[in-house]
Amino acid sequence: MNVNNLIARHRGTLIIPIVIANVILLANLASGDTKSWQELVWLDIAGEGGAALLALLWIVLILNSRPGGRVTRMLVAGLSGIFLSYWQDVMDEFIRLPDAIVWDHWLESGAMPVGMILLTLGIYHWHKEQQAISAQLIRRERIFREHRSLDNLTPLSGAHYLREQLKRELSRPDQPLALIMLDLHCFDHSRRLLGPSDSDRLLKELGELLLLNLRQQDLLCRYAGDRFAIVLPMTQQAEADRIACELQQAVRHFAFKTRRGESHFMTAQMGIAVAHDDDACSLIERANQRLPGATASWQAA
């Protein structure tokens, strides 16, 4: 977690509950008397104080893992209400307020249900977001639900999943099938030029770009290194050539922005194979061999 980036992106959102908590502290000190050491109930202090700190920690984690927006604001507002309710509970353990003061009871009893309602609304809309994202991933990538099928970097499915899907498609011999192997030209030079962090981010963003240029039934996998595989069901040679050309153009016009703000351009090489009495391994082999300059089979890790 980069604390400096978090504070820079969400300074206002983080400051609001902290400022309110300080106002509550000052109001308690101004209105009541501090309890003696013997009057303190440390179990209550630990429970209520721990709950307040956890609510504050959840706020930080949400802000660090989510973009800004309505759902994030609802989640933070809900957790802020819960935090402030527990915060006043902690104040009551240290400070005795006169019976005539009732705002502390309103704060304890009011902030909690309001916070729970806002948090519930935020979780509900977050759930709807995740449903939409999952539906898109299923349509665009046909991802296995087991995390072991995902590539750690991009994340796309890897070579093992590619072979499994090819076996499934090839089990229907009456339907045409094409495979494109896409290899980035001189990527080793780009990695030396960009450094490991930017070059990894380049592969991730390139995977997202390729997905946007594929059809719903197509499958994109990261085969190995800077090599991607695209499975094209119900596709003959001419259609595969057209899709490969479109992908090449998309990569050529992709201006990757480095962390220094510079633009870096790449080109891609394509190897296309249309299934003819192939198994998964032979189809992959033929597509790899048709990459420009290919002299040997590329073995996936």
Rank of each mutant, 00 (worst) to 15 (best):
N2Q: 12
V3S: 12
N4V: 15
R9E: 11
R9F: 12
L14K: 01
V19E: 04
A21E: 03
N28E: 01
A30M: 01
G32Q: 07
T34Y: 09
K35V: 12
S36R: 15
W37S: 10
Q38C: 06
Q38L: 12
E39L: 08
L40V: 07
V41P: 09
L43M: 02
D44M: 01
D44A: 00
L53F: 00
L54F: 01
L57W: 08
L63S: 11
L63Y: 10
P67E: 10
P67N: 02
V71F: 05
T72V: 08
M74C: 12
L79Y: 10
I82F: 13
F83N: 05
F83W: 04
D89H: 10
D89S: 10
D92A: 09
I95D: 12
R96A: 15
I101K: 09
D104I: 11
D104T: 10
H105L: 14
L107S: 06
L107R: 10
S109F: 05
M112Y: 09
G115V: 02
L118M: 13
L118E: 05
T120C: 08
Y124D: 10
Q130E: 15
Q131M: 14
A132C: 15
I133S: 14
S134I: 14
S134L: 14
Q136L: 13
I138Q: 15
R140A: 11
E141S: 13
E141P: 02
E141R: 13
R142T: 04
R142E: 13
H147Q: 13
H147R: 10
S149C: 05
D151A: 00
D151G: 03
T154K: 00
T154G: 00
S157C: 09
A159V: 11
Q165I: 07
K167I: 06
P173Y: 03
Q175H: 11
L177T: 01
H185I: 15
D188P: 09
D188M: 15
S199I: 02
D200W: 08
L203M: 05
G207A: 02
L210W: 00
L212Y: 02
L214Y: 06
R215S: 11
Q216P: 08
L220Y: 04
L220C: 02
C221L: 08
R222G: 01
Y223H: 04
G225A: 00
R227W: 04
F228D: 02
Q237H: 06
A238Y: 07
A238N: 08
C245T: 14
V251M: 03
V251G: 05
F254L: 04
F256A: 10
K257H: 08
R260V: 05
V274K: 02
H276Q: 08
H276A: 10
D278Q: 00
A280N: 00
S282R: 03
I284N: 06
R286K: 11
N288E: 11
Q289L: 13
R290E: 04
G293Y: 00
A296Q: 12
S297M: 15
W298R: 15
Q299K: 13
A301D: 11
